[in-house]
Design a protein around this nucleic acid. Structure first.
Lengths: 327, 327
DNA sequence: TTGAAAGCGCTAACAC
DNA sequence: GTGTTAGCGCTTTCAA
């Protein structure tokens, strides 16, 4: 391994000069700078980022803590974050918490220990503890859900999206829409439930809700349970695309045709939604943009710009009516 | 920030003893160890991983360089890698190259500079240069595609999968299957093309192939082009699920029904494949397992176990016949 | 403008 | 079994 001293010797200057030129800091004599660059080049010198990080007491990596990269929503968020990071010289550490409080806590510790420059977090719930990060001076921005602490947050207008979707179902003439949503203590799950209930209440129909884990098996089980119950729904508002995968599978198994036998709207405009026949009506949220925006907020904190008080932003949720919600 | 010296002072021992107990290295007197732990706990001590990394001259992070985390295949690979990493005390740095040679090279440099413990790479093509990593003693394992260098590699039997899928199409009575695949210089694209051609040649029909970028727009364009051409195909073998999204969209736009008007098999068992009506026949590959296996190979290198020569492994590609390929 | 030198916080010889 | 101490490779005062 060739180190800074080797370059200095080859260029016949001090290590300080090498450091300065390579970081194009203060003014270095152009002639010397040229010698340094040539020496570095010919020796194949690569600065050791670990040493630099230690000395500078900061790194150029962000940690991204989400529940599951296989959830297409978070996949897009991650891509948005990564693009923002890369174009500003940062790399991103990917952490899947799997909605597991303990694993999430461990990742937060790792992030603190690694002295990441910043952290973007989709917290398990409001009880997620980021105090250690804060104490270490590591800025954190929250996405998708919110966190107890006073932090920059960017979310989708989940409740509103759910309300509009359910109202739409009702307006189309479906009489008994059910809400299939995530765990009651997951903020998005509850917000979408609340929005849906708002519409249902206004309409004077029953609240048919199932809270299940945010995956396709959860969706399948909820759909089966609802369809076998006495209070059988005739339409579904499904709180995300993974749940919908299970719901649609179960409907298909029962030969129930969406858009005629039952109505359906799901949250998240998955790429396959318009491919199904009938095409699935969705509430679309801007996942990639959410990641990008979180990156921007983080950059603001990193550069010290931005307001003192935490920013709380909402991205729109847009109903896209296709066929599955029509009668 | 509380550091190791503070803990040592509080426990009235030397920093060496603190280090030893916290790394449960050599034997430390249980009583002292207890004092150290108590002190560390009460001071809220968190070891500085950066300092440790510098001193140990190795880190506990892996870099994962793929083309695009939004490609569901790589999403699953990433999850497999992350799980393997986490359960062995490593974190993973996520790098999207977007099939861009230059961006890939930059990420390899970052990985080298950060002194990652190891790297898992889906290379742009065989010309990807990992010599700097090798020189730095960083083990790299290659996934999905291969790399010029002599490296551990884990791939899917792409060619065989493609051949079987195309043979199946032919056996079902489709007369003119076309192959829609990725860029000619992407190894998987070429392997799947080659496999498909093998079947087509044996059957004595024309080779109808389109090389396009590995995304849904590429698939859409290729399908449109083929359907408008003089040599109109009556079936499609599509080399991955992102391409298939575009192909299926185009078919739908033209009101062409899969499984009756045209036959179709796609590579990758996307979660939505069985939801379409008719359900899509697929060649399934084990993406999650590929990531996990890559992790295992990397761990072997890291621990020095494993054979001296590079391992070259293939995971099976399995045809799952559903409805889209039937007449 | 340049160089000497003091650390960043930790681990691992080495000595006791 | 425990402590002292010399670095890991770099950046950054501080002097010159």
């Amino acid at each position: 391994m060739v180190k800074i001293g080797d370059v200095a010797a080859a260029a016949d200057v001090s290590v300080a000069t090498v450091s300065r030129t390579l970081n194009n800091n203060s003014t270095v004599d152009p002639a010397l700078a040229e010698r340094v660059r040539a020496a570095a080049e010919s020796l194949g010198y690569r600065p050791n980022a670990v040493a630099r990080n230690l000395r500078r007491r900061r790194t150029s990596v962000w940690a991204l803590v989400i529940t599951d990269i296989e959830n297409p929503f978070y996949t897009a968020v991650a891509r948005g974050v990564e693009d923002a990071a890369r174009s500003n010289g940062y790399s991103v550490l990917l952490c899947n918490s799997d909605e597991d409080q303990e694993r999430e806590a461990r990742y937060l510790q790792v992030a603190a220990g690694e002295h990441v420059a910043g952290l973007i977090l989709a917290p398990r719930n409001a009880s997620t503890d980021v105090s250690e990060l804060r104490a270490a001076g590591i800025p954190v921005v929250v996405v998708d859900r919110s966190c107890g602490a006073e932090l920059d947050t960017v979310r989708t207008k989940s409740s509103e999206g759910a309300r509009i979707a359910t109202e739409h179902l009702l307006a189309e003439g479906w009489r008994r829409p059910a809400c299939i949503t995530g765990p009651a203590d997951a903020e998005t799950a509850e917000a979408r439930h609340a929005g849906s209930v708002l519409a249902v209440d206004a309409h004077g129909t029953d609240d048919l809700t199932r809270h299940v884990s945010y995956d396709s098996e959860g969706g399948r089980a909820a759909a089966a349970d609802l369809l076998d119950s006495d209070a059988r729904p005739d339409a579904f508002f499904v709180a995300n695309s993974m749940l919908a995968l299970g719901v649609l599978g179960e409907l298909r198994r029962r030969a129930l045709r969406v858009g005629s036998d039952v109505g359906l709207v799901m949250f998240d405009d998955a790429p396959w939604a318009r491919l199904l026949d009938p095409a699935i009506s969705v509430v679309s949220q801007s996942a990639y943009e959410m990641g990008g925006r979180a990156g921007e907020l983080l950059l603001d904190r990193l550069s010290g710009s931005g307001p003192a008080e935490p920013r709380n932003e909402y991205l729109p949720a847009t109903l896209i009516v296709r066929e599955s919600s029509r009668r």
